[in-house]
Computed example of a mutant assay.
Amino acid sequence: MNATDVMDLKIDRPTTDIDRAGERPRPLIDPFARAITYLRVSVTDRCDLRCVYCMAENMTFLPKADLLTLEELDRLCSAFVAKGVRKLRMTGGEPLVRRGVMTLFRSLSRHLQSGALDELTLTTNGTQLPKYAAELKDLGVRRINVSLDTLDADKFRAITRWGDLHKVLEGIDAAQAAGLQVKINAVALKGVNDDEIPSLLSWAHGRGMDLTLIEVMPLGDIGEERRIDQYLPLSMVRTRLSERFTLEDIDYRTGGPARFVRVKETGGRLGLITPLTHNFCESCNRVRLTCTGTLYMCLGQEDAADLRAPLRASETNDPLYAAIDEAIRHKPKGHDFVIDRRHKRPALGRHMSVTGG
């Protein structure tokens, strides 16, 4: 399939209950009265980088035959939209390396046009943005997250194992030129980028971009690296930043887990995602769908539901809606993340790239 074929590809959508009856299926409310309005979708487990906190260097990826088709991903996402999801985030791995992925964005953009969806967005490492940024903007994507942990080219290559910082910076340039609002996500890594966080903050805010810092999460075997060696509590980072900047707590939310502060000296926002030092479970409105159709109700738990079987069992969405409802009834109150200091084991066996963070 060449580029022209991809542009011309159409996703055939089945008739759904909402199409027939004109009524939405009942919304998603979990056992703790939290409305589930945010779906993160890992469209692929593959990535063109190998960040040391995310993957092992020699990853074994899923056979391509195991992945849902783009048509199936569209149908699953649309079922969640029909049940009250207002925000879709495409993740990976690296979502923009999935062949033909823009056809999925193009099809899902109809929910933005109808008003059924508030936001369609993605998290990316930025390497493919020079190719896709303008089209993403044309399809209704308004803001994106770019993962970037350092502005030092040698350090970037070490963190990503072979990445080229210049390509990511070109991607950010392309995104901003296209009119996309960019937020930078940086994982705080002890002894790696902790000394660089103030300059990363100043750089991001100087370009009109918010910065969100994330504690390393104990997911997946990452080879010789050890989580305890990587882990840097953001409570410590905030204390250090407070010696240089004035941080003011603000009531600002993006629909995700970050708590934000305003940096008085720059005027920009700094987000903090703290799954270990202070989890964000009490207000969790999210579930995560993998590229194989597995639904994880919590990033930090192994409980999951298979949606591929009911998806393929019927041309109508009734079995799928029932499976989604049953899954949400099992959403836990929170995760149990902890870094195992004695055995140096991850909290969970699956890698971050499987569920997309």
Score class of each variant (00 low, 15 high):
243 E>K: 09
232 L>K: 03
262 R>A: 11
230 Q>R: 08
248 E>A: 10
261 V>Q: 00
250 I>A: 07
250 I>N: 05
261 V>K: 00
250 I>V: 15
245 F>I: 10
250 I>M: 11
252 Y>N: 12
237 V>S: 04
229 D>W: 03
260 F>G: 00
263 V>R: 00
240 R>Y: 14
248 E>T: 15
231 Y>H: 10
259 R>P: 03
239 T>I: 04
257 P>I: 01
264 K>N: 15
238 R>L: 13
234 L>D: 01
259 R>Q: 10
249 D>C: 06
262 R>V: 07
259 R>K: 08
234 L>I: 03
251 D>M: 06
232 L>H: 06
231 Y>D: 10
260 F>I: 03
235 S>P: 08
254 T>E: 12
261 V>L: 02
237 V>E: 03
239 T>F: 04
250 I>F: 06
233 P>V: 10
263 V>E: 09
240 R>E: 15
251 D>Y: 04
240 R>H: 15
256 G>S: 07
239 T>M: 07
251 D>P: 11
255 G>D: 01
231 Y>P: 06
247 L>I: 14
261 V>E: 01
261 V>M: 02
249 D>S: 09
257 P>S: 02
248 E>I: 14
262 R>L: 13
253 R>W: 02
246 T>E: 13
238 R>F: 05
232 L>P: 04
234 L>G: 01
232 L>Y: 09
230 Q>C: 09
230 Q>I: 10
251 D>G: 09
261 V>W: 01
258 A>Q: 08
257 P>D: 03
264 K>V: 15
254 T>K: 03
255 G>A: 05
244 R>G: 12
238 R>A: 11
258 A>S: 11
240 R>T: 14
259 R>N: 09
262 R>C: 05
262 R>I: 05
231 Y>C: 05
256 G>D: 13
254 T>R: 01
251 D>L: 06
259 R>C: 05
243 E>S: 10
240 R>Q: 15
246 T>F: 07
237 V>F: 03
258 A>E: 06
235 S>W: 02
241 L>K: 01
244 R>A: 12
229 D>A: 11
236 M>P: 02
233 P>Y: 07
254 T>D: 14
258 A>R: 07
253 R>T: 11
240 R>C: 13
237 V>Q: 02
233 P>D: 09
260 F>L: 03
235 S>T: 15
245 F>S: 00
236 M>I: 11
256 G>V: 07
238 R>K: 12
231 Y>S: 04
237 V>P: 05
239 T>N: 08
256 G>E: 07
244 R>N: 11
242 S>E: 15
256 G>P: 07
229 D>C: 06
247 L>C: 12
256 G>M: 02
255 G>P: 09
232 L>Q: 08
249 D>F: 04
246 T>M: 10
257 P>F: 00
247 L>N: 09
238 R>G: 02
254 T>P: 08
243 E>N: 06
242 S>I: 12
263 V>Y: 05
254 T>M: 04
241 L>V: 08
231 Y>T: 02
250 I>W: 06
236 M>E: 14
263 V>N: 07
239 T>H: 07
253 R>C: 11
252 Y>W: 13
261 V>G: 00
259 R>D: 11
253 R>L: 05
243 E>A: 14
230 Q>V: 09
258 A>D: 07
232 L>M: 11
255 G>C: 03
246 T>G: 08
